[in-house]
Design a protein around this nucleic acid. Sequence first.
DNA 1: GCCAACGTTGGC
DNA 2: GCCAACGTTGGC
Length: 166
Amino acid sequence: MNKPTKRYWLVKSEPDVFSIQDLAAAPDQSTHWDGVRNYQARNTMRDDMKKGDLVLFYHSNAKPPGVAGIAQIARESYPDHTAFDQSDSHYDPKSRPDSPTWFMVDIQFVEAFQEILSLPELKQIPELADMVLLQKGSRLSVQPVTAAQFTLIRKLGRQTKNRSKN
DNA sequence: GCCAACGTTGGC
DNA sequence: GCCAACGTTGGC
């Protein structure tokens, strides 16, 4: 019996499309993470994400971009059915139900930070310099995070910067 | 809106 | 197998 290893991840979403507030408002506060069409990201979802793993929820293409909160893996990988749907914008004819190319997981809301921990702030933290997110040209939408990086970001995200600013 | 960086496709 | 062309990502 292998002892299950808890791992940590980061997923990106454009808040105009699906924000962490949308996740919190969803049925069961959960959703399937469909539409990923990058092989490296797929491999992470298909092979490595395990139920209960914690996930940083990152808002991309936002003002500002940054980590908005935390989710967890609620269901391990299964075929992404949107790839089979010709009317779906993520349709991919090379993925077939009997031999799927694309996979997804379910993620569930855990907590939203009161304020976004913004990308400029993340960049200023020396301990986070090795984050995949912060590497030049990095565009992976599903990526690993170390336990130390996760713990630090959660701590910073929970701190309120502008307390009682009335 | 711009554009750098990246991944994928397809001709050869 | 190479690589130019193209489409996408995502910060600014």
